[in-house]
């Protein structure tokens, strides 16, 4: 399984758990273009917190090192990792594959 496939699985699982926690009848669709935060977004601010904290924990466990999704690097990118599902997935891939 490639790193991107692993990340995709972790993200889909995390969104599934998030939907359960929120008591949502419908799961999140987890399409690449799903907007996470900003105009037309899927998440409110508290749900975004849950997503980020849960993802950090799962990714850190999977790759055996501390990974932060909200450090300065994430916050100052031209394209925010939290714009869409694919931008977050791409950012996580950068973090886990860098030496």
């Amino acid at each position: 399984m490639s790193e991107l496939d692993k990340i995709q699985t972790i993200m889909v699982d995390t969104f599934k758990d998030l939907a359960d926690q929120l008591g949502q009848a419908e799961p999140f669709e987890c399409k690449d273009e799903m907007i996470l935060f900003g105009a037309g977004a899927t998440l409110d601010s508290l749900t975004l917190v849950s997503l980020v904290v849960d993802l950090e924990s799962r990714i850190s466990d999977e790759w055996g090192r501390e990974i932060s999704l909200t450090d300065d690097r994430a916050m100052t990118r031209a394209v925010s990792p939290f714009d869409t599902f694919i931008s977050l997935k791409t950012y996580i891939n950068e973090l886990v594959t860098e030496k």
Partner: peptide, 14 residues
């Protein structure tokens, strides 16, 4: 505490 139907995408709690 926030109402469950707060608008999505806004950094309200922050």
């Amino acid at each position: 505490m926030l109402s469950p139907d707060i608008p999505k995408g806004y950094p309200i709690s922050f």
